[in-house]
Design a protein around this nucleic acid. Structure first.
Lengths: 336, 336
DNA sequence: CATGATGTCTGCATCGTTGCAGAGCATTCA
DNA sequence: TGAATGCTCTGCAACGATGCAGACATCATG
């Protein structure tokens, strides 16, 4: 038989639909006796409310969507966990979707009849889509952007200070006396804004110590994956004067670079020191363990969810640019 | 202004609601001229269909839910990617939820008024909840179980042959002449069915070669995380006669164990060989790289989604027990 | 010219639920 | 006694969309 509805239960219990609804929702004006009688029928037929109908009536779903490029990138996986925790505190459920860093899929999400309308709000970690496109869509669903892009003040945005983070990482290496510090992960094109900010930080760290940057030591990578880090490191090792340290724009790149170094028989950190960004758990267990700049993921999640829910409730002020703290975690790969 | 509805557009364009709906959905019986006129209004007001309403009317959402214990466990993250890909082929969207391996949250998902009713079907990778509980719920939503549990034929179930996989892994070590092969990850209690199957395989591999198992070499762990693998390995190293090889019940345990070995100055694989299960990408980049048993994740996803969608369409046969192939991938940690 | 077929377009009912206004009844108070 | 109050309970309308049956106009056919 089809799933029982309120009507079915009402008929069976000889009461009005409305009363059954009241019992289901525990509303006050139902006598204990009748409540019990209805409850029996509810259990008998195994009634379960149709959330779609309830949502339609109430105009909200209690769900927020979290859209990330890739779930199998540990940073995002760890962030998701924090977001789910943060949202639960507000009684919201989080549904995660993955775009594969495909601009088409990101666009799809914001398009006319997208599933996104199923959510009361959207946390978006855009990779490929640009600010213009995002603004173009007349999307009524509140959106908060996470991390990876800086937009010009059209949306709420939560991220670490990428320039400072990169400066810290690079500075740590320079202060050790390393003088040929490479950088892996630049993305000198439209959608690589985060990477570009990190490159700025890398340059600033050099400038502050009055050092020049050897442009050949800056290796761009289209994405932030282990394999690309490995390949970039191999290219650096092939230079006539290879680096004595590497700042990688995220931990995955760093882990790939370390793999290349280990395989090439270079000692870490003696021959080459390595620093990453993200503080993913994997870096605690690698050999050597990975020095990294840790964004406060829990704080990112809390603030992002907070602002989003304010937006949903209509109490959100003008778009805010929220900066979350980060800190350097020194482990073996760049120990003193 | 509130979000425009079909009614708003209809009024503005001086046509019936029904006609606007036809234009939106591209249905046939609308003249080109009228279609164009309505389209203009649609664009003007920025109409976007309310999916909740559409779903209610149609009785389906086009969404399937994927529930995993932990998204930041790489195996699950990688599986999620495959599931999303597989589901897209059927025109379904996947929403991911995470239970934290908390029985309470798993139960919540199947409970009376759970969000689960928002999905046309559910892929569930249960960790804490038992078969009995699952069956108890009169859940009308089709469910397919993934991997981690063997239930007695009440549900569709997709997994590798855990006994065979463990036998393969252990056998690989024994065939190398290793004679003190430890096992990390047993879970000798109710919800540890997968672990218990792997222990069976471990024992079978020994039995087939006429070897006895040293029970002290079987180290249980409540979960499959890096830290627990590390701690288990440390305990094994403290034995008077430590192992010369370890079979870990998943790759994370193995990576933790390798970290302990590296830290203790043991050479891998010379002093101690290591094998895991799952084939997560991290194992390709660890030092040394990790030998592992690789389940065919893409196939798991394809089959699971396939059966689920058959169930949704009502064409699913009796609950099926689907076994997916696996293969040994030999890398440095247990090379010959 | 009557008939039927075709092509457009409309209105009503409906999906399953909740908001709202009010009915019916008993109790209380002046 | 009559009105006022409070407690239960009910029925109608509505959320925003689509299925269905049918209205109307147009056209071709015998």
């Amino acid at each position: 038989m089809a799933r029982p509805t309120l009507r079915d239960v009402a008929k069976r219990a000889n009461v009005s639909i409305r009363t059954v609804s009241n019992v289901v929702n525990g509303y006050a004006p139902v006598s204990d006796e009748l409540r019990a009688r209805v409850q029996v029928v509810l259990d008998e037929v195994g009634y379960r409310p149709n959330l779609i109908a309830r949502n339609l009536k109430q105009g909200r779903t209690g769900m927020i969507g979290l859209v990330v490029p890739e779930l199998d990138v540990p940073y995002f996986a760890e962030l998701v966990r924090e977001v789910i925790t943060a949202a639960r505190a507000y009684g919201y459920v989080v549904m995660v979707d993955q775009t594969d860093g495909d601009a088409e899929r990101e666009r799809e999400l914001l398009a006319r009849d997208s599933r996104a309308t199923m959510f009361d709000g959207l946390l978006l970690s855009p990779l490929a889509i640009s600010a213009e496109e995002l603004r173009g869509r007349g999307n009524r669903v509140p959106i908060v952007l996470l991390g990876e892009h800086i937009f010009n003040g059209s949306f709420h945005h939560v991220a670490i200070d990428n320039v400072a983070a990169a400066r810290t990482a690079t500075g740590h290496l320079l202060e050790q006396g390393r003088r040929r510090v490479a950088a892996i992960g630049d993305q000198p094109y439209a959608t690589g804004e985060t990477a570009q900010l990190r490159t700025s930080g890398y340059r600033q760290a050099h400038a502050r110590m009055g050092l020049d940057v050897d442009e050949r030591l800056i290796v761009p990578t289209p994405r932030f994956h282990r394999r690309l880090g490995l390949e970039a490191m191999e290219r650096l090792l092939a230079l006539p004067d290879p680096p004595d340290a590497v700042f990688c724009y995220n931990d995955l790149l760093a882990l790939g670079a370390m793999r290349a170094l280990n395989r090439a028989g270079r000692r870490i950190p003696d021959d080459v020191a390595v620093v990453g960004i993200d503080d993913i758990e994997e870096g605690e267990y690698s050999t050597p363990s990975l020095t990294t700049v840790a964004p406060d993921k829990a704080e990112i999640a809390r603030l992002a969810v907070g602002v989003l829910i304010e937006s949903i409730n209509g109490s959100a002020p003008t778009p805010s640019e929220i900066v979350v703290p980060h800190r350097l975690i020194v482990r073996e790969s760049a120990a003193l």
